[in-house]
Amino acid sequence: MTEKASMIVNMHATPEVAADVPAAWAHFRRDLTPMMRNAGPGRFGMGRLGMGAVRVPPGHSACPAHTHLQADEIFVVLEGQGLFRYGDRVYDIGPGDCISCPADTGVAHQIANPVTQDGMGDLVYLAIGAEPPAEVCTYPDSGSLVIDGLNRRGFLREAPYYEGQPEPTPLLSCHAGKI
């Protein structure tokens, strides 16, 4: 058998990695597009689209409800039964369901695997999405946000436009022609 090219990844042979997250968000991922991955701040892989296989145990969700300003996302359910939250609505999801979450709608989305009386197992889905370098995500349940381009996570507080700006502006104290 010939060796596979580096851009070919077998979903079943790729190592599954436990996410380093608080227990309520426990899940496992398989990176299926390593050549497309962001290589770090200011450096990008060969693409800006990614896909991973996500496995979520009963009673968990891989992430909080969130919105994306720039990144469209698509989810394809492979195994198990789950819940999909889109804004204020909740839908049952199962194998074969393809879920579209367009960017810049302001509508939050989330997938979860509830604990059920019939003992359903893990929920497994593909997560496919754009990975823009300056993405902004909001989290309506907590009021937090993520600004990828600035590598910042936290809470935004309202402030007047000029709050904290030095007076007079440092530009006026510079020597003519030197900035």
Rank of each mutant, 00 (worst) to 15 (best):
M1H: 08
E3M: 13
K4G: 01
M11A: 15
H12Y: 13
A19R: 11
P22T: 09
A24C: 00
A26Q: 13
F28I: 04
F28G: 00
R30P: 01
R30H: 02
L32E: 03
P41F: 13
P41Q: 09
F44N: 10
M46P: 00
M46R: 07
R48V: 00
G50Y: 02
A53V: 10
V56Y: 04
H60G: 01
H60A: 07
S61L: 01
S61P: 02
A62G: 05
A62L: 01
T67D: 05
T67F: 11
T67R: 06
T67V: 14
V76L: 15
V76S: 08
G80I: 13
R89A: 15
D97W: 11
I99T: 05
C101Q: 10
A103F: 00
D104I: 03
H109W: 10
I111R: 05
N113I: 03
N113P: 00
N113M: 04
G121D: 11
D122F: 08
Y125M: 06
I128V: 15
G129R: 07
T138H: 10
Y139I: 14
P140V: 05
S144I: 02
V146C: 12
I147D: 08
R153C: 08
G154R: 04
R157A: 10
A159Y: 00
Y161T: 14
G164A: 10
Q165C: 05
P166I: 03
T169C: 09
T169W: 06
C174W: 04
I179T: 08
